[in-house]
Design a binder for these strands. Structure first.
Lengths: 193, 193
DNA sequence: TAATAAGCGGAACGTATATTCCAAAACTTA
DNA sequence: TAAGTTTTGGAATATACGTTCCGCTTATTA
């Protein structure tokens, strides 16, 4: 009976996330999103309620995708240290790939929205905890295999690695070249010995 | 002859920087700024041209003030390592002091504006270089006094420290408690040994 | 093929926003 | 105290934006 949706919900959120990352929440207009997705105004409001909900859903999807990428690393036949190294090299690669379209929606959300939107704040906070936990697990594994020498509790290093990660995402938006990001990663990894 | 300005230019920029830091550029309206400063519309446009120029001037002032704080540390009778430690403890203290009004205009500018505004991008980039250079100098001093053991070029560590700094400012906007920031600083400083 | 239920295009609305402009107020100096 | 220059208050404007709404279109099923 009913006509079926002519667009893919995931693709729309993907595009929305892309624009929100570039222009921020308040810098992005509904028209920007309509233009980029080809959607009609009514379809958008029908499927995503309003701009604020669209943003939150795009942010959640972004988080889910990042998390999935981490899980893929987690499934690999690598030791904890190698997994950490892989994540950082992939992040740097991703940040550098397109110098004029880099950055991270999660970091930008923390900067622009977390003080004004409780829901955004929670997503950002949950993401932090989840990534740190994954880092913790990898560090423990590396410790078990005598690949690192730590003289502080494991969670210190999970927090430290996550902090480095956030820093890199800011640095890449501050005009840092690849060498600079690489150097930061080198010192960060050396801190585990 | 002329009536003298009824407001202090620095105070206005200070207030503007405060609001821009809280709400971002696009999230802040002229009315927000008028309300916070008590200025009249005409005075604001007379003295600061338009919103975009006001933002840039507020950002420049913010940078100058941060730089001045760094210079004050630089003048102290401390060795390089102590200066680094002092800066980090002051930054953490500052970020934690008011949990609902933390963050950093420079980091937020990098996230929200640097991709869209060349001038913002330049300020952010210059700030990075200046702080890194200062860190470099302090690290060299610490090295001279055998307070640190480094097996990589000095500038690696300047870049690394600046990265940690940016990370802290994102972390504090991601719901991190003081202990967490302290832990990050501890591991960062331990990386210099 | 006809009936049906949802998608869709686009006009319309109200509000918020950045900016301009002008006349009145206010301060300084002679 | 009066003249002159600047500030200042606030009305006015034009535009941009988020959101709603309605009638047409389209795909599905019986």
């Amino acid at each position: 009976m009913p006509k079926v949706k002519q667009f893919n919900r995931g693709h729309v959120l993907q595009e929305a996330a892309h624009i929100f990352r570039q222009k921020g929440y308040n810098g992005t207009s509904i028209d920007d999103i309509l233009k980029a997705t080809g959607l009609s105004r009514s379809s958008l409001y029908d499927s995503f309620q309003d701009k604020h909900n669209l943003y939150l859903q795009a942010l959640e999807m972004y988080k889910k995708q990042e998390n999935q990428a981490y899980q893929e690393v987690h499934q690999k036949q690598l030791n904890g240290l190698e997994k950490i190294e892989l994540v950082f090299s992939e992040v740097v690669k991703h940040l550098i790939e397109n110098p004029h379209d880099n950055g991270c929606l999660m970091v930008n959300a923390a900067a622009e929205m977390s003080k004004q939107c409780e829901k955004t704040s929670q997503v950002v906070c949950n993401n932090k905890d989840e990534v740190q936990n994954l880092f913790d697990a990898w560090i423990k594994d590396a410790q078990k295999n005598n690949l690192v020498k730590l003289n502080k509790p494991v969670e210190f290093y999970g927090q430290f690695l996550y902090n480095t990660l956030c820093g890199l995402k800011v640095l890449s938006q501050s005009g840092a070249a690849k060498t600079e990001l690489d150097n930061v990663v080198k010192v960060t990894l050396a801190a585990l010995n």
